[in-house]
Nucleic acid binder design. Structure first.
Lengths: 110, 110
DNA sequence: ATCAATACATAGGCACACAATGTATAATGA
DNA sequence: TCATTATACATTGTGTGCCTATGTATTGAT
């Protein structure tokens, strides 16, 4: 089941930060992983991800570095900055508050 | 803690439908209730709610009826239509899928 | 030789949340 | 008395992020 794109607003940033908190990754890899992990509930495309990566880099929450992969293709690997790690903590907390609120409002006795 | 407005996208509709599924309500009442139930994590204003109510009514998911309240003020009460009840079920399921996906992606081992 | 997959990128459009503003009445209170 | 707050409706304009579409280029498979 693919999720309404309106809901997607605002979640790309914390998701990307969290993935990069585990290991360095490149854009295309992030797209594939996210779609797979959500069983295609998320269907990220390049037009979703790359602008978001560029925003995060401009905000100094992530950093990039070109590398030549085993398959001889150039990849731009991203890593989390210290500032990004701090932002991640905040955004996770924000998500928790948000999700809890929605769950309350969607409960039967709301 | 007030939540980033980007996250708010797309949740107003299911929330309103769910509230009206319990009882008929008027706009101002919905605003106050939502803000209170979320401890002001949500800070809905008129500019958020009324356009959304009008959209939902145009889509025939809710219906309205003017009434004069005890305090002598005219209020527009909204009720859920059968179509709205069906939409609510779908939107709740969509939220569940979405929230689960985000939780997976924000988990430590994502 | 052609197509699919990999891997980057940008441009344009759209739709929703928000801020700001407006109207009107009732109640509170200084 | 007169100002302010709360109630209750509504609209307009702006911004931002997601999506679609498109583009370039290379590698590997058929």
């Amino acid at each position: 089941m693919a999720v309404n794109s309106d809901l997607m607003r605002g979640v790309a940033e914390p998701v990307i930060l969290n993935l990069l908190n585990n290991k360095k990754m490149y854009g295309y890899e992030i797209i594939k992983l996210v779609n797979e992990k959500t069983n295609n509930a998320f269907q990220w495309k390049e037009g979703t991800l790359y602008p978001c990566l560029h925003r995060l880099e401009a905000a100094k929450l992530i950093e990039s570095e070109w590398q030549i992969a085993e398959n001889n293709k150039p990849r731009k690997y991203y890593t989390l900055t210290r500032k990004g790690a701090a932002a991640l903590v905040e955004k996770k907390e924000e998500w928790a508050v948000f999700a809890k609120s929605v769950n309350v409002l969607l409960s039967a006795t709301a």
